[in-house]
Nucleic acid binder design. Structure first.
Length: 210
DNA sequence: ACATTAAGTGATT
DNA sequence: AATCACTTAATGT
């Protein structure tokens, strides 16, 4: 775990902090598709992403989903921050997009480190800001962009977090994530293919202009 | 060869 | 952009 820490966070945190994290943090490996946080959960620890990616989504009463954004290595779940500070329930659901390695930090520690370590404080504020920006982007995308742009952003993001220009998903799964119908996705993907931006195959999409 | 599942298409609202 | 109804194509048994 120490190795993973220095590798991904060494340039961010001082040695003492790295040391403390490695002592207190709980290292976890999460397989793809696992739900990390559910709506209504109380959060008692904060995840530090070491490897992999996590999909953050909103869900309504009926279980219809809507993907907000992805989280990659070097990030934290901003919801965690606002939730544990306010001791509130989670408003979102977090699902492992790929196999993920992370380090869990108890909330109390993460709070006390805020005063103790400048770099930690900076990291927390920075990632909070990043998340805020992404959230606003997500709102813009949903409110002002048409489906086709939303779709392209989605597959691009997906390719990004997977570090691969080929993503393996069915049109139906995309439709679920974007909260629309499969037919619409199929049609829009077809258009993107005709425009030479992607290549379609059964169960996979290759993005050409990244 | 047949059943199942994913994807493509026209028409309608 | 959603839904229906139907076709075509790919994949599993």
């Amino acid at each position: 775990m120490l190795k993973a820490l220095t590798e991904h966070y060494g340039y961010l945190f001082e040695d003492e902090l790295i040391q403390e994290i490695s002592q207190i943090g709980i290292y976890k490996e999460i397989p793809e598709g696992t739900s990390l946080i559910d709506i209504g959960d109380y959060i008692k620890s904060m995840p530090l992403l070491v490897e992999g990616a996590i999909k953050i989504l909103r869900e309504d009463e009926k279980g219809d989903e809507l993907v907000l954004y992805f989280i990659e290595q070097g990030d934290t779940c901003a919801m965690t921050l606002s939730c544990c500070i306010g001791r509130a329930k989670s408003e979102i659901r977090a699902v492992a997009e790929t196999d993920t390695k992370l380090i869990m930090i108890p909330v109390e520690k993460m709070e006390s480190w805020l005063g103790k370590y400048k770099t930690w404080q900076h990291f927390i504020l920075q990632s909070y800001h990043n998340r805020m920006t992404e959230l606003l982007e997500a709102v813009d995308t949903i409110a002002f962009l048409k489906m086709d742009e939303r779709l392209f952003k989605y597959i691009k993001d997906k390719a990004m977090v997977n570090h691969n220009e080929v993503i393996n998903v069915t049109h139906q799964e995309i439709a679920n994530d974007l909260h629309t119908s499969r037919v619409v996705i199929s049609r829009l993907l077809k258009k993107l293919e005709i425009n030479g931006r992607i290549i379609l195959n059964r169960n996979s999409i290759k993005i050409l202009d990244l």
